[in-house]
Design a binder for these strands. Sequence first.
RNA 1: CUUGCAGGAUAUCUUAUCGCGUCUCGCAAUAGCGAGAUGAGGAAAGUCCGGACACCAUAGCGUAGCAUAGCGGGUAACGCCCGUCCUACUGACCAUACGUGUCAGUAGCGGACAAGUGCAACAGAAAGCAAGUACAGGUAAUGCUGUAGUGAAAUCAGGUAAACUCUAUGCGGUGAAACGCCAAGUAUAUCAACAUUUGAGGGUAGCGCGCCCGAGUUGAAGGGUUGGCGGAUAGAAUGUUGUGGCAACAUAACAUCCAGAUAAAUGAUAAGAGCCCUUUUGGGAUACAGAAUCCGGCUUAUUUCCUGCAUAUGAA
Length: 148
Amino acid sequence: MKYDNCHTLQPQENMYFSVMCFKFTKNERLKSKKLFQSVFDNGKVITAYPLKISYLPISDTSIHKSQISVLVGKKKFKSAVRRNRVKRIIREAYRLNKHLIFNNIEGKYAFLILYIGDDLPTVETVEKAMVSLFNNLITVEKDEKADS
RNA sequence: CUUGCAGGAUAUCUUAUCGCGUCUCGCAAUAGCGAGAUGAGGAAAGUCCGGACACCAUAGCGUAGCAUAGCGGGUAACGCCCGUCCUACUGACCAUACGUGUCAGUAGCGGACAAGUGCAACAGAAAGCAAGUACAGGUAAUGCUGUAGUGAAAUCAGGUAAACUCUAUGCGGUGAAACGCCAAGUAUAUCAACAUUUGAGGGUAGCGCGCCCGAGUUGAAGGGUUGGCGGAUAGAAUGUUGUGGCAACAUAACAUCCAGAUAAAUGAUAAGAGCCCUUUUGGGAUACAGAAUCCGGCUUAUUUCCUGCAUAUGAA
């Protein structure tokens, strides 16, 4: 993993060395309808209320980064303002915590993050859920790689 | 004091850090990076009207359907806006003039019942198809005639069109997922039916006529794609001043450039200022709501303040 263009921060207390990149550009969004559908149909699912993530490794070489898409049901939040708000909170949580994954696992993934709660979330709850989600994901993936 | 309606203003701001879309410049070359600029609303909403624009054939004729409805004006256009008349209601005013007067406000789907059809509570014998009370007159006889009585209206008319209908005017359809182009890819393959100027089939998405295209079309069973660019943001644009007009609005000059995404940017955190409450420490609140081709309206949601009008309740 190279992050030549990102800021290199000083190591935190209990991390050996971490490269933090907080950027979240257009190329990190899941746009291909095909990929979206395949993740939706075949992805592995991990839940940490109020979030649910479904993911697949990307094999396509023309995609250079892990891609993510956030889904918030129109039935849960009728108002477009609230839907936007939830999406933005989730994206922000992903942006600030994605280094947890990419400093621990090799490879590219396509993620779908669904919001399954009923109420407008706070930033803290979403961030907590995101962190636990990522920790679960890392352990699952490491186990699988060890098996193979 | 509360609520409603109408009109006007308003819809917190600053800094720092981490980020996002677009544009420009520079450096790099296809995992880009850096700097600068810029980035949601008064309703962006509902999608209810009217246009621009695009395609459908050139957008025709008849019929159906829909919309509008005093008069005049504004506008690209409208079902919108302005003015005005009428009708109804409310308030104020009063001179040698208390008049169905003048002024102000509010409301009104405000054409036609001189063609046809329908409808009508209560009262009444009767509001049409069947009848008739009292008194008077008249006849061979009879509601045959008059008056009274009921009612807004009584034997022949009236009311009602937010009843059908008629009249006048307007409306072709679809809707940016329109439409134009580029790239990539597959099957120029198989079977069946109909047809090639004696015309299969298709278009004009209410129907008919007319018109036009036309050499392939339809079905079965399969194969491939579902990317990119344009449309697309300088306009019936915004602001200021002047001129014309009662006004809606028009026009001239000057100035300005003000989102352009596409699984869809406009966010997060912290501090401070402002607002509200509190003696202070401090605490609290921040509505409705998110551009999606673009404009003009209407309607609905909603924060705070101001002005006017109306309404009911409470207190004095």
